[in-house]
C-alpha cells in the first residue's frame, strides 16, 4: 500500500507594516512568490511571531513612531525567519547597520517588484 505523501510545508510570510495602503500589493507579490501571508500592524510581538511561525518577515521600516533598527533587532531575536526590510532610506550606512542587526535583505526606494520577489526567495 502506498503511503500518502506528507503535505508540503506551505511557506508563510509575516507582513509588519505601518502603511495599510501597501498591504494588498505586498500580498499579491508574496502570493506570486509562493508565500501565504499573515499581516500585522506596526510591530510583531513575540507572541505573533510564535503563532505565525513565518518563513519570511517583510518589515516596512517606515511606520510612524517606530524605531526601525530596534524593530529589526527585536524581530531577529525572536525568529530565524528571513527578514526583508523595505525602506525609503538610501543611506548605505543605515543599510549596513540593518544587515548587521539581523536583516537578510534591505530594499531601498528604488527597489521594484522583481527585487522584492527575489528578496523573499520566491519558489
Amino acid at each position: 500500500m502506498q503511503r500518502p505523501h506528507k503535505r508540503a510545508h506551505a511557506r508563510k510570510a509575516l507582513i509588519v507594516h505601518g502603511q495599510r495602503l501597501m498591504v494588498p500589493f505586498l500580498k499579491d507579490v508574496l502570493a506570486c512568490a509562493g508565500l501565504g501571508e499573515v499581516v500585522t500592524y506596526r510591530c510583531a510581538s513575540a507572541g505573533t511571531l510564535r503563532r505565525a511561525r513565518p518563513d519570511v518577515v517583510l518589515l516596512d521600516a517606515d511606520p510612524r513612531g517606530a524605531q526601525p533598527l530596534g524593530l529589526i533587532r527585536e524581530t531577529r531575536l525572536q525568529t530565524s525567519a528571513r527578514i526583508v526590510v523595505i525602506t525609503r532610506s538610501e543611506d548605505r550606512a543605515w543599510e549596513a547597520v540593518a544587515l548587521a542587526l539581523g536583516a537578510d535583505a534591505v530594499l531601498g526606494p528604488k527597489a521594484n517588484r522583481q527585487d522584492l520577489f527575489t528578496a523573499v526567495g520566491a519558489t
Binding site: 495602503l21 500589493f25 499579491d28 523595505i86 525609503r88 526606494p109 527597489a111 521594484n112 517588484r113
Partner: peptide, 13 residues
C-alpha cells in the same frame, strides 16, 4: 512617490 514599491501599490489600488 519616491518609493517605487509604494508607487506600484498605489497604482494597483
Amino acid at each position: 512617490e519616491a518609493q517605487v514599491l509604494f508607487a506600484k501599490a498605489l497604482s494597483a489600488i
